[in-house]
Write a protein that binds this DNA or RNA. Structure first.
Lengths: 335, 335
DNA sequence: GACGGGAATCGAAGCGCTTCGACACTCCTG
DNA sequence: CAGGAGTGTCGAAGCGCTTCGATTCCCGTC
């Protein structure tokens, strides 16, 4: 194992000088700096993480907590996680992956043991049990998602209310007067997940304002569940011509069912989705959609964390504006 | 911050005694042990991770390296990652998440800096650039996937060759004589990903042996790509009655296309998938499938890691036997 | 009653790094 | 030319833990 002492000896300097070259916390002549750098490189030196954490009181690790429940759409979680890990590296941090399994206790453990310098919590619920703990611990935390009361917290999220409103407005502009919001599974609403509820509120408000009638239909992520819902929707409101979908798992089933029923998209029914770009672009009908910017959210979360760690206080609610891409699944309402 | 010294003082013992209570490496009277435990609990003590790593020369962290390319099916990666993290915790380890971004250099960095005690590499390619490095570093490594030459390595994987063979055999038993294997995207084969290639070999061998004609059609993960392939397959081999699918992204498009073409499943065409149970169970037709045991693989990988870390040498190729579940998508070949 | 042996506990060293104060220079400035 | 203000480097302390003897105490044995 290569230690800082060996690097120092080879460069003809003291260990502290090597440390300062590495951290840049004191001025080092460019000549010495070069010599040290070369020594580091030639020996393939990597500072011992434990020693560095102990002496420096910084672990250079960010903890990423997965949701308490994992009935959510996994690819999005994964995309966020990968973006977090990648961005963290560019700032010199590694990422510790925590599952919801341990629950709130994990927050305590990580903070108390100084395993990480900061926390990122994913898929925060409106009344998340981990939130009270965040105030007790010293490490900064950033939430992906938005609790009921985001005051004093640093949050990053898509503006789901605006996204819901945007979808409804898009359909309204095209002349649709009766629409339905096909949402996440009932369980997701039952546990008050922020994003689902907020989307609904935004959509409802827009519908009211624009004089559009709207049904809300939470739907399990299976073909059969979608089939039952679609039948019900057109039974209850035969005049429905616009659908907003916020449930990646039923996108393809929905399109397939509409075809089977002889409802052409977009001539008979317009569909707007809230989903990752990839899902929208690769569906059987290229979907008009509001993107779920998973990577962007992961990236921003890390940037907020780094801000906080470097003393830039930044306790804000960072809402990403929804961006609707017009593709082939939406068009004028039939006359 | 609570230190071991405070715990010791409160319990009326020396710090080393507390340490021994925690590690169990020396006998401590049950009386003292209880007193120390109580003290730990009352103070909410969690050992400082950095100090523990430095002094003990063990970080109690397992590094999990994501694939170099992420064009693979993300939910499976995610499931494995979650299983790894959860299982690791039950053995007292945390998990460090590394992306492929850094490439092989990450292996060096983690090993040299002692950030982790062991590595788990996901989605290993047949000739993976990270493999040569594994021999140079001291930390044990476990691969999820199977390189060309697994000798001397610890690997965990589904037996994809057997899985491919099993699917073909299932169709053959039902009397099918002309089948097609709808595979992963061409790029996946081009870079010699082990699982795709092995499935193909297993399927081919079984087809030859059982006197079944088989087409192999790599397919991009989009509806349009699937549509093009399905047309081509039935043009080239109109007598095709059995399909094996190894590409989660096109499962639903495939079923939808078959419906559109008036091909009933399973009366006209039988479909067997190699995919996660959830995908098979929630598809529009409940699919006969060989499960992709993501959780099991993650769990086993961690167990192999722990074996190695605790001195139980275990350099084996741990192949999980494929398990085919007969659902509603396969039946006797039409006469 | 001296002694050996095992069980339980302690004290101190040391893991590899960061950081603080001190020191040795050089360069201005008055 | 003395004094002050940088600038660059070093030495040593110390971060909180583990671990290796050393020590104490108690018991059974001859």
């Amino acid at each position: 194992m290569v230690t800082i002492a060996e690097v120092a000896r080879r460069a003809g300097v003291s260990p502290s000088t090597v440390s300062y070259v590495l951290s840049g916390k004191r001025a080092i002549s460019s000549e010495t700096r070069e010599r040290v750098r070369r020594s580091i490189h030639e020996l393939g030196y990597h500072p011992n993480a434990g020693a560095r954490a102990l002496a420096g009181n910084r672990s250079h690790v960010i903890a990423l907590m997965m949701p308490l429940r994992t009935d959510m759409y996994l690819p999005v979680m994964m995309e966020i996680a990968l973006a977090v890990a990648t961005t963290a590296r560019t700032h010199g941090y590694d990422v510790l992956l925590l599952t919801g399994e341990e629950g709130a206790a994990a927050v305590r453990r990580i903070a108390d043991s100084a395993s990480a310098d900061a926390l990122i919590l994913m898929d925060v619920e409106l009344d998340d049990e981990r939130l009270p703990l965040l105030e007790e611990i010293a490490s900064p935390a950033v939430l992906i998602g938005q609790p009921a009361d985001p005051a004093g917290l640093t949050c990053v999220d898509l503006d789901f209310a605006a996204a819901g409103a945007r979808c409804v407005a898009h359909l309204a502009e095209l002349g649709h007067r009766e629409i339905a919001l096909i949402g996440e599974a009932p369980a997701v609403y039952a546990r008050h997940t922020g994003f689902a509820e907020r989307t609904l509120q935004g959509a409802r408000a827009a519908a009211r304002e624009l004089g559009v009638r709207m049904l809300h239909r939470p739907t399990e992520g299976s073909y059969d569940a979608m089939a039952a819902q679609i039948t019900r929707i057109f039974d209850e409101r035969p005049g429905t011509t616009g659908l907003v979908v916020q449930n990646e798992a039923v996108v393809e089933p929905l399109l397939s069912l509409l075809r089977q029923q002889g409802r052409a998209v977009p001539e008979d029914v317009s569909v707007v989705a809230i989903c990752p770009e990839q899902v929208a672009a690769q569906a059987s009908v290229r979907l008009t959609s509001v993107a779920l910017p998973a990577q962007e959210m992961g990236r921003r979360a890390v940037e907020r964390v780094v801000d906080r760690l470097e003393g830039r206080e930044h306790r804000t609610l960072d809402l990403l504006a929804p961006h609707l891409t017009d593709r082939a699944s939406s068009g004028p309402a039939p006359v």
